[in-house]
């Protein structure tokens, strides 16, 4: 589904990603961990197509297509979803209106008819239940005045609405209390199928109690320096990254 080869990327001339290799297949959950400043969020942004970053080397194939030349919206329409670490507030634009335009734009790209108003409302209701999102929030402006937990729930709600093939969740767990974390993580798990895949970027093992990864990767200085199974996350939580970093230096 996703094939990343030797990916290098810079921002303002500074190289942040220095040769990432990653293969993701349908049905898989990958966790990416690593110390601060190792390039985790940059990797998510580059996959999504944020133009702030320049890819200088390597390739990214999504669903068999080279996506590096595609603008961010086309990658989204192909089914690549990015859960933002800091969801943006958009005053005056209601969630319902935003999601309606987004969903129908994605449907158009796939050659599908737009949803009728009734179908859309039913879908909103059904999907907001997945993340226990207060249905009142969907009539409010996008993220405006939402609490930190509501913003993150709202990211997963949008993911539920858009049903992406690949979801990249950038520190969706940061700033969440225990209850919100459970709701968000359970939502992600509910949305997981054998046809889609998820990459979760996280600092903490606790998220992985709910979202059980098939692979755990450690990103350091713009490279994946180690890959293991879910037990790696537990070991990292206990022992930190130093043992890996020391090994890597040698």
């Amino acid at each position: 589904m996703l094939s990343v080869k030797n990916l290098h990327a810079t921002v303002d001339g500074k190289e942040i990603l220095r040769g990432i290799n990653l293969e993701v297949h349908p049905g898989e959950v990958h966790a990416i961990m690593g110390p601060n400043g190792s390039g985790k969020s940059t990797f998510a942004s580059v996959l999504a197509g944020n133009e702030k970053f320049t890819v200088t080397e390597g390739s990214v194939e999504f669903l068999g297509e080279n996506i590096l030349d595609l603008p961010i919206e086309d990658r989204a329409r192909m089914g690549l979803f990015l859960g933002f670490q800091y969801p943006v507030e958009i005053p005056g634009v209601t969630m319902a209106n935003f999601m309606k335009v987004a969903l129908n734009e994605q449907r158009k790209y796939r050659g599908e008819e737009p949803l009728s108003a009734g179908e859309f409302l039913r879908l909103m209701k059904q999907k907001s239940a997945v993340v226990e999102l207060d249905s009142k929030l969907t009539s409010r402006a996008v993220n405006e005045g939402f609490s930190g937990g509501e913003k993150k729930k709202n990211e997963i709600f949008q993911m539920a609405m858009l049903e992406p093939k690949l979801a990249v969740l950038d520190e969706t767990d940061s700033g969440l209390d225990i209850d919100a974390l459970r709701i968000v993580a359970t939502g992600v798990t509910k949305l997981h199928t054998e046809e889609n895949a998820t990459i979760v970027i996280t600092h903490y093992q606790r998220l992985l109690d709910y979202i059980v990864p098939d692979f755990v990767h450690v990103l350091y200085k713009g490279r994946i320096i180690h890959t293991g199974d879910k037990s790696l996350a537990l070991k990292l939580e206990k022992e930190g990254y130093d043992w890996l970093i020391n090994e890597y230096k040698e």
Partner: peptide, 26 residues
Amino acid sequence: DGDAVLYMRQRGLSEAQARSLQLEGF
């Protein structure tokens, strides 16, 4: 707001749609 435009594009809106939705919101 460039961040808002980027956010909306990541959900599948074109740049023009994202800008006009933001202005409408304004």
